[in-house]
Design a binder for these strands. Structure first.
Length: 589
DNA sequence: CTAGGGTTAG
């Protein structure tokens, strides 16, 4: 009936348009046209709409909601339609919803077939829903689908992803019609958990191998088992290496900090993609060379490779480590200009970067604009506010976090406690420390005790601080005694300071810094005999003062200062610093 | 009528 409302040819052209649409808004426009013609409830039209959605490269939450809507408006939906909705959810941001749709499908008495299970199982593997997967497994056996290649491969990889290697292996061994994918899934299960002995055994046994098999093994040895040399031996055996193999091998080296080896392969590989660059950039960021990371980032852009959000996170954290605000803002601007979708990871990296660069307003702006926040985002704000000297604001944010019922972890408390310390909010800090276990279920670690000692010590409540160290459930370490020692200097408590040094020495951690601090405490009090005695002791122990080092960004240029070393200090840099300082002085009036 | 499984970077 509905069909007679508009001509067959118009319908056909609409449908062919649908098949070639590449964005949700295009699909929506077409749907609107179809709705006005009262056609959307037609199963055939619904299936076309859903197929169009499933072909969008990135399934947004709008897309999944829309798929649910189409399903609900289509009373005569068949198995194909339901399968497609399950598939859309499995590819979306919340794979769990695929299982929800699957359950409704069964409740409403629809037939499930060999196309239903691979998608549901994939979803289970993605959110690690082994419980649900186990039930589905029973279902599959009842339906006699456990001999279907796709269904069984789905089961094997679901079991592997959920860490149930024994079940996966049972399925694998009993399955006589195994293909290359079955082998790769099983080997991947072992490799992703670093069980390389078992993976290697199967790898040697398998009838044929493809690029995936090699990539799985190289990645398993390099990243998961931290055995880069074995990974390299396989890599060298491999006749024609694809991009993934190169990247996995480079990532293996970067993961263990062998940046020279990583770099050498990077230069050798035939072509690099944005992932290759990201691996290298991240490697430098994680192994103490953020400056090199930024140089690479700029090189990559110059070669015409667009940065994606993963790569940007590397660059942003390099900026954070360097305190390079101008560059960080530039990366932020780049992402906006290139319409790169800012997800929670990028936004959190930006918050962290702005905080580390001391730009609280920008950090706050990004944080407030976030539609979703996790514990890492909150921590970045709380820790950042604390280290920038805004203890009250950090505390405020902590209470807001509590009100909103956001999950906290041990870093949250390290952040808020040290914020209290620096703002002199001693009683507030104490109260939070004492609520940690009861109200938030987080057992204080040795670091939290460190904060407590600091909190009390800096406020001059030295006896209470020492009492914490003497009575805490785990034994205090040199760092904790060191923190009390630092408080002793501030409050000129010579005797307690000497006791701290004693403890540190007993723990075998008495480095030059400890004695220098101690001798400074004596000096503050004019106890020169003790100063010289301490200096002599240092000489006897063969200690020398170590050099300090710092890095700053001035006017877009990153400068590195090493105490006692002026070689980096070029005249040009000197001029920039001078200019910058004079600018600042002028603006301060 | 139509569709499907395995690898790589935070």
């Amino acid at each position: 009936m509905a069909r007679s409302l508009f001509s067959f040819t118009t319908q056909r052209s609409l449908l062919s348009l649908l098949l070639s649409s590449t964005s949700l808004s295009q699909v929506l426009q077409l749907h609107a046209q179809l709705i006005t013609r009262a056609l959307a409830s037609d199963p055939f039209v619904a299936s076309r709409l859903l197929l169009a959605i499933s072909e969008i490269p990135v399934i947004s939450s709008d897309a999944t909601t829309y798929a649910d809507l189409i399903l609900s408006r289509c009373p005569r939906a068949n198995t194909f339609i339901w399968n497609t909705v399950v598939r859309i959810h499995a590819a979306g941001l919340e794979p769990r919803r695929a299982v929800v749709v699957f359950r409704r499908m069964r409740q409403e008495g629809l037939d499930t077939d060999s196309y239903t299970y691979p998608f549901v199982l994939k979803a289970c593997g993605l959110f690690l829903g082994w419980e649900e997967g186990g039930q589905i497994h029973g279902d599959v056996v009842k339906k006699g689908l456990d001999f279907d290649l796709f269904v069984t491969n789905g089961l094997i990889s679901m079991c592997c992803r959920c860490g149930n290697l024994a079940s996966a292996r049972r399925l694998f061994d009993r399955f006589l019609e195994k293909d290359l994918v079955s082998w790769n899934a099983m080997i991947g299960g072992y490799a992703s958990r670093g069980e390389m002995r078992q993976a290697q055994e199967l790898f040697d046994e398998m009838p044929e191998r493809d690029a995936f098999s090699w990539a799985i093994m190289i990645d398993g040895y390099g990243k998961k088992a931290m055995d880069v040399d074995s990974a390299r031996r396989l890599f060298d055996c491999l006749p024609d290496r694809d991009l993934v193999c190169w990247n996995s091998m480079i990532d293996g080296y970067a993961g263990v900090g062998r940046m020279d080896d990583a770099r050498e392969l990077f230069e050798m590989m035939p072509t690099q993609n944005v992932i290759s660059w990201s691996i290298l950039i991240d490697g430098y960021v994680n192994h103490g060379d953020p400056k090199e990371a930024l140089i690479l980032f700029q090189q990559m852009l110059r070669q015409g490779i667009r940065a994606d959000k993963v790569c940007a996170v590397g660059a942003i954290s390099a900026c954070a480590q360097l305190g390079a605000l101008d560059l960080g803002r530039w990366v932020h601007f780049y992402l906006r200009k290139n319409k790169v979708l800012l997800d929670i990871v990028v936004q959190t990296a930006l918050v962290d970067m702005y905080m580390k660069c001391g730009s609280l307003d920008h950090a706050r702006m990004v944080f407030e604009s976030m539609s979703d926040r996790n514990v890492i985002s909150w921590n970045a704000m709380i820790v950042g506010l604390g280290t920038n000297g805004h203890g009250e604001k950090a505390l405020e944010l902590f209470f807001r976090m509590e009100r909103e019922g956001a999950a906290m972890d041990d870093l949250t408390f390290l952040g808020v406690l040290s914020a209290c310390t620096h703002a002199g909010l001693v009683d507030e800090g104490l109260s939070i420390f004492h609520r940690m276990k009861g109200d938030f279920g987080i057992e204080p670690s040795i670091e939290h005790y460190g904060c407590l000692v600091d909190l009390l010590g800096r406020a001059g409540r030295l006896a209470e601080a020492k009492n914490v160290l003497d009575t805490m459930p785990v034994e205090a370490n040199p760092a904790l005694w060191g923190s009390l020692l630092a408080s002793c200097r501030v409050h000129r408590a010579v005797d307690m300071a000497a006791a701290c040094v004693q403890h540190i020495a007993e723990l075998g951690a008495d480095d030059s810094g400890v004695y220098i601090l101690m001798s400074n405490i004596y000096a503050d009090k004019g106890m020169w005999e003790d100063v010289w005695r301490t200096r002599r002791l240092m000489g006897e122990k063969g200690m020398k003062k170590e050099s300090g080092r710092s890095v700053i960004e001035v006017d877009g240029v990153v400068l590195e200062f090493v105490n006692g070393d002026r070689s980096h200090f070029l005249m040009e840099d000197m001029l920039r610093v001078t200019w910058c300082l004079s600018e600042m002085c002028t603006s301060l009036g």
